[in-house]
């Protein structure tokens, strides 16, 4: 009781935290791009009726959705180096784990979004003489993306939160830097409170944006045609 809060030592290390924040943003950006683009590919493969495409995609999605991402990261960090002839850096291991995990989840978002487009849209574009690929690119995906937007934003927020797991393999990001500062200054309360708040303040506007998008979708879906 009566703990004396003192945030000064935390802010004295603001540069270290900033350095960590850059690390967080870097791995977030990498995983967002890799996760979503690979997710789109896997989602299209899942949607395909060809077994050779469909099967591996399904296995990939099921495996990565049903195993914890931290296990995946540690596997890439500790286990994969046994199989490949080069070093695996903390960033590589964490980025691989988070990206593949996110790809599996976003693949399901993409597949669901594509499936939600009425068959009439396919028929109309095919009737114009478009190929399947053209129809997908010009007609189906633009409509599907709009519907998937809330779920994809949500995924992005999850990726951001997952980036903290990279600290488990000592990748330098915000939480990792916080650990360091806390152990040097013996002030875990202030450090972890600041970090928690930093994440909240950064992510909450995005969360609100997702809610707004969801509401807008719900309205345009009920009001439309």
């Amino acid at each position: 009781m009566g703990y004396q809060w003192n945030f000064a030592p935390v802010f004295e290390h603001a540069d270290a935290l900033l350095y960590g924040a850059v690390g967080t943003l870097r791995i977030f950006a990498i995983c967002l791009v890799l996760g979503l683009s690979f997710g789109l590919v896997v989602g299209l493969m899942r949607y395909s009726r060809r077994r050779l495409l469909n099967w591996p995609a399904t296995a990939f999605v099921e495996f990565f959705r049903n195993t914890p991402v931290l296990v995946q990261i540690l596997w890439f960090y500790f286990a994969l180096p046994m199989l490949v002839p080069f070093e695996i850096s903390p960033l590589m291991a964490a980025a691989l784990g988070i990206s593949l995990n996110s790809a599996a989840f976003s693949a399901e978002i993409f597949r669901g979004g594509i499936q939600s487009i009425e068959p009439g849209q396919w028929e109309a574009s095919r009737a114009l003489g478009m190929t399947g690929l053209q129809a997908m690119r010009r007609i189906i995906l633009p409509q599907a993306i709009r519907r998937m937007l809330p779920a994809l934003t949500n995924r992005a927020i999850e990726i951001f939160k997952m980036s903290t797991l990279a600290s488990a393999v000592a990748y330098v990001e915000l939480l990792q830097q916080g650990k360091l500062i806390a152990s040097l200054n013996f002030n875990p309360i202030e450090v972890y409170t600041v970090i928690a708040l930093a994440f909240f303040l950064f992510l909450y506007p995005l969360v609100r944006a997702t809610y707004a998008l969801e509401r807008q979708m719900a309205r345009s879906d009920s009001g439309g045609d």
Binding site: Y3, K161, S163, L175, T193, I195, A196, F199, V207
Partner: peptide, 25 residues
């Protein structure tokens, strides 16, 4: 609800493991 859904669980865990014991002894 919003706070615990928005912040990373690992940060929460660190807070409860490293910070809370100091705070409430």
């Amino acid at each position: 609800i919003e706070f615990f859904r928005t912040t990373p669980p690992l940060v929460q865990l660190f807070w409860f493991f490293f910070a809370l014991p100091v705070l409430i002894r």
